[in-house]
């Protein structure tokens, strides 16, 4: 527990709570600044998940909802990378959950009534646990772009949602991965609620020919970084431990 001191978050690097062009933020962004305090045991600890909970195909969205002998429709891709903290240390043994639209841009969700059809062999969710070197990998299909109700002609870039756990619950993070070269990235109010172009660029996965399997499946690389652990313990940081 003593190793899990949490570095303060750079809130200017994250998307701003109220994004003028992302309508849903208007009624959901708190007005007050977040109350900041030195971490306690509650923030420095967090749940642990073991490989035993994983099913054989949890990390393969191409087949994990498909009928026997079938597979999801769409360009086949591997998404892989490394989970690190801000100090560059790999973060092993952590749960990563992903979800996404199908190749036509349709989610398997009762609230999604987009015209594009469902794929009966595709659920759109998967999960894996990082290895001892922080590496993770899953197989899926390239999600489609889709329109969304935001008051105008808004289309989401193709993206995959990521939910990530760290050692401490204060490291908990949800983000989205985009694809290199997608012109919708620059047009999307959700992406552009991130003020720093460098922060956006870090959410863009790159085509990775080194992991691309010839005549089979292309690979994209997406590295994820969690909040780091402070080198100098905060005064009183150990209170409650």
């Amino acid at each position: 527990m003593t190793e899990n001191l949490i570095k303060p978050r750079d809130l200017d690097w994250h998307p701003q709570p109220v994004a003028k062009d992302y309508r849903s933020t208007h009624l959901r962004a708190p007005a007050h600044a977040r109350l900041h305090y030195a971490p306690t045991a509650t923030e420095m600890t967090g749940p642990a998940f073991g490989h035993a909970m994983l099913g054989e195909y949890d990390d393969d969205l191409i087949v994990n909802y498909a009928a026997a002998g079938q597979s999801a429709i769409g360009p086949r891709i591997i998404v892989h990378g490394t989970l690190r903290d801000e100090d560059g240390r790999p973060v092993p043994g952590k749960l990563i959950e992903v979800w996404q639209a199908n190749a036509g841009g349709r989610y398997r969700h009762k609230k999604d009534d987009y015209t594009a059809p469902l794929d009966e062999n595709f659920a759109g969710c998967g999960r894996c646990i990082t290895g001892t070197d922080g590496a993770y990998s899953f197989r899926t299909i390239l999600p489609g772009a889709y329109p969304w109700p935001n008051g105008g002609n808004d289309w989401r870039p193709a993206h995959i949602h990521f939910s990530v756990f760290g050692d401490g619950f204060a490291q908990r993070l949800i983000t989205q991965m985009y694809f290199e070269g997608d012109p919708h990235i620059a047009l999307c109010p959700i992406v552009q609620s991130i003020p720093d172009a460098a922060a956006i660029d870090r959410l863009v996965a790159r085509l990775d020919m080194t992991k691309t399997v010839p005549m089979d499946i292309r690979a994209y690389r997406f590295d994820i970084v969690l909040r780091g652990r402070s080198a100098t313990p905060f005064e009183n940081a150990m209170e409650g431990t």
Binding site: D10, W13, H14, R84, E86, H161, V191, A199, V225
Partner: peptide, 11 residues
């Protein structure tokens, strides 16, 4: 390194 920027969990 800097923390990966957050994005909404969406609907």
């Amino acid at each position: 390194l800097k923390e990966s920027a957050s994005q909404t969990a969406g609907p």
